[in-house]
Write a protein that binds this DNA or RNA. Structure first.
Lengths: 143, 143
DNA sequence: GTCGGTGCAAATGCTTTGCATTGAT
DNA sequence: ATCAATGCAAAGCATTTGCACCGAC
């Protein structure tokens, strides 16, 4: 599997765009987080490493990474966007604790199979899906 | 099954709040739409019927209906919130066409069973879930 | 020297809030 | 009288955009 930066570089090249230091910084910050992240967290991560990338560039890079299929939008509860590195990984779904906010990722091939079956019945061609479970984790204080 | 307005009224009463004409208007508009809706659409719907409810009150009422468990947030793709009447209905999931934007609702007991199984394995107690399939509908023009 | 890239600040657009007024019990 | 509800306009907040400047090829 090609390293992420070359995947991104290749994508950019195909669009006549450049792989700049700022774009590399954003990608590095995403790799460092390795999980669900928000735009603001990337800014903090980069600052921590002494890199100053503007908010605008960060958002613009996130946008490119989405287009490239390297990251996807993940959670869907808050108003804020959450993203997640996806390239080279199995798609992951999320379970969120309604009391503690704890987030657990899981994957289920059964789910994908079910999705494909539902699509087939209706004559649609599946592309992707999102599944999020709201639940209470065992370590939540019982009310 | 109790009519929606009494469910709402009962909820409000339990919180020491009132069932006002404006709140009734919002609920009526939601019932009239019968599907996924946005705040702005409710304002239009109400205007169409000659009711003037402010944007602020509409949002405040949506908030109360969410608390009451009468509606839930539905789609999760755009920045905008989408809601859906849920009380007295089976939870419904969504399939969105990536080319035409067409929206289809479906329900799957299998999905709920799968959700419960996943929770059980991890020791969590399931409360709710959301599932959205991204696909291409058969009536989309092939690229 | 032409394009794209960047940062800044301003704009956007949905949603929320502060506040003065109004209404119900 | 008290307590909540309403409408308006202003504020919030994540995200996007316009613009001037910079740099690579």
């Amino acid at each position: 599997m090609a390293p992420l930066c070359s995947v991104f570089r290749r994508y950019l090249k195909s669009k006549g765009l450049k792989y700049t230091a700022e774009r590399a910084d954003v990608l590095d910050a995403i790799i460092a987080r390795d999980g669900v992240f928000e735009a603001e967290e990337l800014l903090l991560e980069m600052r921590k490493r002494g890199h100053r990338v503007s908010k605008a560039t960060t958002y613009r890079t996130i946008s490119l990474l989405l287009e490239a299929g390297i990251i996807v939008q993940a959670l869907f509860d808050s108003k804020q966007s959450h993203y997640q590195l996806i390239y080279g990984k199995e798609p992951r779904d999320h379970m969120v604790c309604m009391k503690t906010g704890k987030l657990v990722e899981f994957q289920s091939t059964e789910l994908t199979a079910l999705r494909n079956r539902i699509c087939k019945e209706l004559g649609w061609s599946p592309v992707a899906h999102r599944f999020q479970i709201y639940a209470v984790s065992p370590d939540a204080p019982r009310s």
